[in-house]
Amino acid sequence: MSLSLQSISLFQFKNYDFEHYSFSNRIVGICGRNGAGKTNLLDAIHYLCFTKSYFHRSDASNVRHGQQGFRIEGHLTLNGKAEKAVCILRETGKKEFTLNDEPYSRFSKHIGHYPCVVIAPDDVELIIGGSEERRKFVDTLLSQLDPAYLQALIHYNKILQQRNSFLRSLNEGFGRDLSVLDILDEQLVKEGRIVFATRAAFLRTFLPLAAQRYSEISQQEEPVDLVYDSELHQADLASLLRITRQKDMVVQRTSAGIHRDDLVFQLGAQTFKSIASQGQRKSLLFALKLAEMDILKKEKGFSPLLLLDDVFEKLDEERITNLLASVCSDQDTQIFITDTNCKRLEGSLHSIGQPVQIIAL
Rank of each mutant, 00 (worst) to 15 (best):
N25T: 11
D123A: 08
V180Y: 12
T244R: 15
R26F: 02
I275Y: 11
M293K: 10
T271I: 15
S329V: 09
L160P: 03
E299D: 08
E191W: 05
E317H: 07
L232N: 01
Q354M: 11
V189D: 06
S277M: 11
Y156D: 00
D59I: 00
N79G: 15
D182R: 08
K300Y: 09
T244A: 15
I275A: 07
G129P: 01
K38L: 02
D229Y: 10
S105A: 13
D177E: 12
Y104K: 06
K94Y: 13
L78H: 08
S7L: 05
K298M: 07
M293W: 03
E91T: 14
H20Y: 11
K109F: 13
F50I: 12
S348L: 00
S131E: 09
G129M: 03
A360Y: 12
K247Q: 13
E317Y: 05
S351L: 02
A256P: 06
V180W: 10
Q12G: 05
D182S: 09
H65P: 02
H350T: 11
D101R: 12
I30L: 09
F97L: 12
L178G: 07
D17I: 11
I194R: 04
S53L: 04
K81Y: 14
F312I: 01
C49W: 02
D182K: 08
D225P: 02
P355Y: 01
E313T: 13
F336A: 04
P355V: 06
A60W: 10
V86P: 03
G279Q: 08
R344V: 01
R134T: 02
K94F: 12
E292Y: 03
D236C: 09
E186Q: 14
D182H: 08
V195T: 04
Q212Y: 13
K94A: 14
P208N: 05
D236H: 11
T77F: 10
R176P: 04
Q12P: 04
S7E: 08
I8P: 00
K84E: 04
Y16I: 06
R71G: 08
I320R: 05
K109E: 15
E299N: 09
L160G: 03
S326I: 07
I27V: 14
V63N: 03
R90E: 14
S22N: 14
L150Y: 05
P121K: 05
V189A: 07
F272P: 00
I337F: 02
H113S: 10
K52P: 02
S24M: 12
I88S: 13
Y16N: 07
L203Q: 05
F18I: 12
E19D: 08
